[in-house]
Design a protein around this nucleic acid. Structure first.
Length: 1071
RNA sequence: GGGCCCGUGGCUUAGUCUGGUUAGAGCACCCGACUGAUAAUCGGGAGGUCGCCGGUUCAAAUCCGGUCGGGCCCA
C-alpha cells in the first residue's frame, strides 16, 4: 500500500472506527519497525531500565494482566519520549507447583509415587510443554493492547542459562553462610506424599467432629499436674514442652468433690488432686468442685519440669529445656486451658518455639504418616489418625487424662484423597533472611514506592517480622537445588556453575542433558572435603519458584557468565510494576536476592497496582461469572479507550471497580470528541492545502487572535500539570485533566467558536492562524496522551506531521530533550475563564427571566472584574446582545449584603460564634458596613473588620442580572437590559425562522451547498420583519429565491410557534 | 488471629495529609434552551444521615477510638 508509507499522506478522516484505526496503526508500526526505532533512536542516551515481572503462560491472560501491562508500557513509553533508552526484555515464569498440578490433573497422577512411577523425565517433559499452552494468547493480547516489549528474545526461567545464574546466586548465599538446612512445618498429605501450598489447602477445608482431650502433665518436683488441651492426640507422643503466657494468670486448684451430674467420655480425677491452668478458663475446663490454692502469673511456673507422656518416643539429646514449661507470646485464653501442648515437629508455632528455646527436634511420625518404631509398643508402624482413640486409652490407663469431648472445627483435607492433612516438619533448605534483616529494611526504605504506604506499611511490616526463607520444595518441575551432600562424611557443597559441576563430576556420572530433574539427579560429585574419598549426591529438591523470579535482574542476562555490561548498566533497575499481591511475592524475592547476593537494592521505583474488581467491588472469579474478557472491549471500544479508561478511572494503586459502561463512556466522550476535532482540522486542511511547514503562510503566535493565544496557553498549562502528575504517579488525575481540556476547552469552546473562521472560503490570515493553532494543539495533545493511548495519538500525530508520535520528544522536556510548549499567558486564561462564566451566566439569566436565547437584548453590562474588551464581540454573540458595555457603578443595579467569614470569625470568637452570627444576621447592612469602614464595628463584644465578612451583591428590580465571584478579583456581574423594541423583535423573528428552515434542510438531507426556494407566511399579530433581517434569513438558509407572504399559507406548509403565534413556511430544494 | 488499603446520590468519583461558605464533578433520569455541532452543547431540577457508633472541637467527609462491609497479604 503506497498510502501507508511514512511519508506525509493525505489524511482520510472518516467516522471513528476504533478497531480498524488501531489495526492500521499497528500494521504501520510493524512495517516501519516503530518500536525498534523508538529504542534505537535513543541508543546512545541515558538508559531508563525496566524489568518485566514474568507471567506464566500456562494460564489465559485476563483483564488484570491488561492493567499491569498498561502501567508498564505507559511509563516506558513516557520515559522513551523523555529521551531515555528504554529496553524492554520480555520474560516467562515457567516453573512451579501450578504447572505440576495442571499436568497431574491431565495425567491423573494423584501422588508423588505415581509421578515417579510415570517417570520424572516424562513428567517434566509434559510440564515443559504445558508452560507454553497459552503463549499464543499472551502474544495476541500483548500486541492488541500495544504493550511494547521484546517477546522475541525473552528470558525464560527454565533455560539452562537462567538456571545457571540462579545457581550462582545461591552459591553466593552459601559462601556467606546464609544457606542452611532445617525444617519447615507444612500441611502434608502422607497418602500423596506431598505438602501443600496455602492455595491448595484452601481447596480442602472440611468440618469435622473429633475427640479433643485435656491432659494432666505431672510435674517433677511438685504434686500438681499442669492441664493442657489438644485436638490432635496423635501429636502427644511428640510432646516436648508446655507453653504458657508470661502475663496470663494461672492458678493451682485442688479437687474437693467428685463431679456432679453426668461425666461424658473417658478420663477422671481424684479428690485431693492438684491441677494448674489459666484462671479465666477454670469453669470452661473443670467438671469438679475445686478450691483455688494459689494464683500466679505464667512467668512464675516457667522452667518447671514434668514427666514425659511417652518416655521412649523422643531422645532428650543435649536439650536442657525438654519437658519443661516455657513462655510463648502466642498463648491465649480463648480456648483450651491457657497452656499449649508443644510437639515441635507438628505445628508451625511449635517448631518456631522449639527452635527458640532449644527443644529436641525429632520426628515420632514418618513420611508415610505412621508412627516411627520405638515410639510406643502399641503405636509403632500404625497410621497416626487411626491411633487417636488408643492414645486416649493409654493416657486414661496412666491416669493422665482429665477428660475428653467432641470438638467440631474446620480442618484442612487433601483435595485429592480427602484425607486430613498433617502439619508436618519437612526437611527444607533456608536462606537466613533474619541475618540480613537490618540491611533489607534499610534497602527497602531507599526504594521509591508508589504508593508510599506499600513500602512503609505492607512491605515494612513484613520485613520487621522477617523469617528465614524456605527455598526448597519436594517437587519435580523447577530449578534443582545445586547442593550435593557427601554420603560418607556429610560434607555439603553448593555448585555455582555448570563448569564447576562438570569439574567435580565422578567418571561414572553422565553429563546432564539439561539442568532439570532427573538429569542432574544422576550427577554424583567427588567429595570436596579434604581427604574424603566419598561420593556426593544432590539434595532431591527444587527451588521455590519465587527464588527463580527473584533472580530476574541478573539471570535475564545470564550474568555473571555473560553480558556483564548489560547487567551492570541495568542494576538496580529503574522501574518495576506489578499488582499489590506481589508484596510478599516478587517485590520481596527481588529485594531478598539482591540484598543477600549484591548487598544492594534491586529496583529504584516500584509501582504497586490495585486489583481489578467487578462493578460491584467484588473479586472477579469464574464461579461468580463476573470475569471481564478484555477482547470484548478490544473488539468494540478499542485498546485506546480501555487503556484511557483504566488510567483515569482510579489511582493506579486503588482497587478498580471495572465497569464496561465506563469504557463506553470514555470511548464516546474522549475519543469521539478528539477524533472529531481532528477531523474538523484535517478536512479544512485538505480543502485549503494547509501546510504547517510553509513559512510564507505561517502566522506568528503574537499575531493570532486572543482565542488562539488562549487555547495555546491552556494546552501549555495543562501539559505542565499533566507532567507533574505523571511525576507523582497520579496518572489518573493527569488523564482526567487532559480529557477535560479536550472536551471542554478544545472541542466545546475553541472549535465551536472557530467554526465560522474556517468556513470562510477565501484565504485569510485569521483562518491560517486557526489552522496553525489547531495543528499545534493537536500535536501536543497527541504527545501527552501517547503513553496512555498509543493508537489514536499516533494516528493524529502521523496525519499532522508524517511521523510517529512514539518517536517524538516529550513536550515538557527533560534533562535529555528540549521543552517545547506554546507560550503561557495566565492573564489571558483568567480572562477567558471569566468570559465563559459570563456567557453561561447570561444563559441562566435568560432562563430565569423567561427571555428566549434567539431574541436579542439591546444592552448588556459587565460590572467589576478585569478588562475583557478583547472578547466583547465573542460575548455579544454568545449572549445575543446588541451592545455590550462595561459599567463601574453597580448601585444602578445592585445593593450590598454582608455574609460572615466563618473561618476567621470562628478563630476569633470561639464559643461566642453563634451569638456573633445572630447579631450579624439582624444588623443593618449599610450601617454595619459604614462602621466597619470607620473601624468601630462591634458585634457581641467583638471588633469586626473587613476580614471577618464577605460582601455579596444582590440585584435590584428592573434589570435581569447575576453575580459570581472570582478569586482575587472579587465579584463580577452581568446585567441584561430586558426591554423590547420592534428592531429586536424583527431580529429575533429572523433567527427563529432561520433555525426552523435549517432544521428542515437537515431533515430533507440537503447538502451544505444546495440552494432552496423558500416561502414564509407572516400574520398581522407577528412582529414586523425588517428587510435586512429578511436578507439574513435568505443568506443563512441559502435561499436563492424567497417570498414573504401575508396571505393564507399553503396546506403543505410547515409551521412553528413563537410567543404563542403560529407561523408557516415551506421550502423546496433547487435541483 | 495479625498487617495494609478502600467505603462520599442509582453508577464512577473530587475533596481527607493541612478541620471552616451551600460536599464539587461526570454518567443515567426529568424540565427547558440552543444547534448545518460530534454518541454534541448550555441552563435548571431531582437525587447525599460522606458505611455505622462514639470522642476531640465553637466547627468533623476530613483528626482520634471502636465497629460493620469489601479487597489484598500473612497466620
Amino acid at each position: 500500500m503506497d498510502d501507508s508509507s511514512s511519508k506525509k499522506s493525505t489524511p482520510n478522516t472518516g467516522t471513528y472506527d476504533s478497531v480498524s484505526l488501531e489495526t492500521a496503526v499497528a500494521e504501520r508500526w510493524q512495517n516501519d519497525k516503530t518500536f525498534e526505532n523508538s529504542i534505537e533512536q535513543r541508543r546512545n542516551s541515558k538508559p531508563f531500565t525496566f524489568l518485566e515481572g514474568p507471567p506464566t503462560a500456562n494460564g489465559k491472560p485476563g483483564i488484570h494482566h491488561v492493567l499491569s501491562r498498561l502501567y508498564k508500557d505507559l511509563v516506558c513509553r513516557w520515559k522513551t519520549m523523555e529521551g531515555h533508552l528504554v529496553e524492554r526484555k520480555g520474560g516467562w515464569d515457567t516453573h512451579g507447583l501450578p504447572v505440576e498440578i495442571e499436568v497431574q490433573k491431565q495425567l491423573n497422577l494423584m501422588s508423588n509415587e505415581e509421578i515417579e512411577a510415570y517417570g520424572i523425565e516424562a513428567f517434566n517433559q509434559k510440564c515443559k510443554e504445558s508452560v507454553w499452552t497459552y503463549e499464543e494468547a499472551w502474544r495476541e493480547m500483548t500486541e492488541r493492547m500495544a504493550f511494547w516489549v521484546d517477546m522475541d528474545n525473552p528470558y525464560v526461567t527454565l533455560h539452562d542459562e537462567y538456571i545457571e545464574s540462579a545457581w550462582w546466586s545461591l552459591k553466593q548465599m552459601h559462601d556467606k553462610g546464609l544457606l542452611f538446612r532445617g525444617y519447615k512445618v507444612l500441611p502434608y498429605c502422607p497418602q500423596t506424599g506431598t505438602s501443600y501450598s496455602t492455595h491448595e489447602v484452601s481447596l480442602g477445608y472440611k468440618e469435622v467432629a473429633e475427640p479433643a482431650v485435656y491432659i494432666k502433665f505431672q510435674l517433677v518436683d511438685d504434686a500438681a499436674s499442669i492441664l493442657a488441651w489438644t485436638t490432635t492426640p496423635w501429636t502427644l507422643p511428640g510432646n516436648v514442652g508446655l507453653a504458657v503466657g508470661s502475663n496470663v494468670k494461672y492458678c493451682r486448684v485442688r479437687i474437693t468433690e467428685p463431679p456432679s451430674g453426668n461425666w461424658e467420655g473417658r478420663g477422671s480425677s481424684e479428690v485431693g488432686e492438684e491441677l494448674i491452668l489459666a484462671k479465666d478458663l477454670l469453669s470452661d475446663v473443670l467438671r469438679h468442685q475445686v478450691e483455688v490454692i494459689e494464683e500466679f502469673s505464667g512467668s512464675e511456673i516457667v522452667g518447671k519440669a514434668y514427666h514425659p507422656l511417652f518416655p521412649d518416643a523422643i531422645d532428650r539429646g543435649d536439650s536442657d529445656t525438654a519437658w519443661t514449661v516455657v513462655p510463648a507470646d502466642f498463648v491465649t485464653t480463648t480456648d483450651g486451658t491457657g497452656v499449649v501442648h508443644t510437639a515441635v515437629m507438628y505445628g508451625e508455632d511449635d517448631y518456631a518455639l522449639g527452635m527458640e528455646v532449644g527443644f529436641p527436634a525429632q520426628h515420632t511420625v514418618g513420611m508415610d504418616g505412621k508412627f516411627i518404631s520405638g515410639t510406643h509398643d502399641s503405636l509403632d508402624g500404625r497410621y497416626v489418625k487411626d491411633c487417636d482413640s488408643d492414645i486416649i486409652n493409654l493416657l486414661e490407663q496412666n491416669g493422665r487424662l482429665y477428660r475428653e469431648h467432641i470438638y467440631t472445627h474446620d480442618y484442612p483435607h487433601c483435595w485429592r484423597t480427602e484425607h486430613p492433612l498433617l502439619y508436618y516438619a519437612m526437611d527444607s533448605w533456608f536462606v537466613r533472611m533474619t541475618a540480613v534483616k537490618d540491611k533489607i529494611i534499610k534497602y527497602n526504605s531507599e526504594v521509591e514506592w508508589a504508593p508510599e504506604w506499600t513500602g512503609t506499611g505492607r512491605v515494612g511490616e513484613w520485613l520487621r517480622n522477617i523469617k528465614d526463607w524456605a527455598i526448597s520444595r519436594e517437587r519435580y518441575w523447577g530449578t534443582p537445588i545445586p547442593v550435593w551432600i557427601c554420603q560418607d562424611c556429610g560434607h555439603e557443597h553448593c555448585i555455582g556453575s555448570i563448569e564447576e559441576m562438570n569439574s567435580m563430576k565422578t567418571d561414572s556420572s553422565p553429563s546432564p542433558k539439561e539442568l532439570h530433574r532427573p538429569y542432574v539427579d544422576a550427577v554424583k560429585l567427588h567429595c570436596s572435603n579434604d581427604g574424603c574419598k566419598g561420593e556426593m549426591v544432590r539434595e532431591p529438591y527444587v527451588m521455590d519458584c519465587w527464588f527463580d523470579s527473584g533472580c530476574a535482574s541478573f539471570a535475564q542476562w545470564h550474568y555473571p557468565f555473560e553480558n556483564e555490561d548489560k547487567f551492570k548498566g541495568s542494576f538496580p533497575v529503574d522501574y518495576i510494576c506489578e499488582a499489590v499481591d506481589q508484596t510478599r511475592g516478587w517485590f520481596y524475592s527481588l529485594l531478598a536476592v539482591s540484598t543477600t547476593v549484591f548487598d544492594s537494592i534491586c529496583y529504584n521505583r516500584c509501582l504497586s497496582l490495585g486489583h481489578i474488581l467487578d462493578n460491584e467491588g467484588k473479586k472477579m472469579s469464574k464461579s461468580k461469572g463476573n470475569v471481564v474478557n478484555p477482547w470484548d472491549h478490544f473488539n468494540k471500544e478499542g485498546t485506546d479507550a480501555i487503556r484511557w479508561y483504566m488510567t483515569t478511572q482510579s489511582a493506579p494503586w486503588s482497587p478498580m471497580n471495572f465497569d464496561p459502561k465506563g469504557v463506553r463512556e470514555t470511548y464516546a466522550k474522549m475519543f469521539l470528541t478528539l477524533w472529531n476535532v481532528h477531523r474538523f482540522h484535517a478536512d479544512y486542511a485538505v480543502l485549503d492545502n494547509f501546510n504547517p511547514n510553509d513559512k510564507s503562510t505561517f502566522v506568528p503566535i503574537g499575531k493570532r487572535s486572543p482565542l488562539d493565544r488562549w487555547i495555546l496557553s491552556r494546552i501549555s498549562t495543562v501539559a505542565q500539570d499533566y507532567h507533574n502528575q505523571f511525576v507523582s504517579w497520579e496518572f489518573h488525575k493527569a488523564g482526567r485533566d487532559l480529557e477535560n481540556f479536550v472536551i471542554t476547552d478544545l472541542s466545546n469552546w475553541y472549535v465551536r467558536r472557530s467554526r465560522r473562521r474556517l468556513w470562510d472560503e477565501a484565504d485569510s490570515s485569521d483562518k491560517r492562524a486557526c489552522q496553525h493553532t489547531l495543528h499545534e494543539v493537536l500535536c501536543t495533545v497527541s504527545k501527552l496522551m501517547a503513553p496512555v493511548s498509543p493508537f489514536m495519538s499516533d494516528r493524529i500525530y502521523h496525519d499532522l506531521t508524517g511521523e510517529s508520535v512514539h518517536m517524538a520528544d516529550w513536550p515538557l522536556g527533560s534533562s535529555l530533550v528540549e521543552k517545547k510548549l506554546p507560550p503561557q499567558d495566565l492573564n489571558l486564561e483568567q480572562q477567558m475563564s471569566i468570559v465563559r462564566t459570563l456567557t453561561e451566566t447570561g444563559r441562566r439569566i435568560r432562563v430565569d427571566s423567561n427571555r428566549r436565547q434567539r431574541l436579542p437584548c439591546q444592552s448588556g453590562w459587565i460590572v467589576g472584574g478585569i478588562d475583557l474588551s478583547a472578547f466583547h464581540s465573542i460575548m455579544a454573540e454568545e449572549l445575543n446582545v446588541e451592545s455590550l458595555k462595561t459599567e463601574k457603578n453597580l448601585d444602578r443595579f445592585q445593593r450590598v449584603e454582608i455574609a460572615p467569614n466563618h473561618k476567621v470569625l470562628g478563630k476569633k470568637c470561639r464559643a461566642d460564634l453563634p451569638k456573633v452570627l445572630s447579631e450579624l444576621a439582624s444588623a443593618d447592612s449599610e450601617k454595619l458596613l459604614d462602621e466597619i469602614e470607620k473601624g468601630n464595628a462591634n458585634l457581641a463584644g467583638y471588633d469586626i473588620t473587613m476580614d471577618d465578612i464577605s460582601l455579596r451583591r444582590v440585584e435590584k428590580e428592573g434589570y435581569a442580572a447575576s453575580t459570581f465571584t472570582v478569586e482575587n478579583l472579587g465579584d463580577i456581574s452581568l446585567v441584561l437590559d430586558m426591554t423590547l423594541n420592534d428592531a429586536l423583535l424583527s431580529k429575533g423573528l429572523a433567527r427563529e425562522i432561520t433555525r426552523r428552515v435549517q432544521s428542515k434542510r437537515k431533515d430533507l438531507d440537503l447538502d451544505l451547498e444546495d440552494t432552496i426556494t423558500l416561502t414564509v407566511w407572516l400574520t398581522e399579530e407577528s412582529p414586523k420583519l425588517e428587510s435586512k433581517d429578511w436578507e439574513y434569513v435568505k443568506s443563512e438558509t441559502r435561499a436563492s429565491s424567497a417570498e414573504l407572504s401575508y396571505s393564507k399559507p399553503s396546506k403543505k406548509a410547515d409551521n412553528f410557534e413563537v410567543d404563542g403565534i403560529k407561523l408557516y413556511f415551506s421550502l423546496k430544494a433547487n435541483k
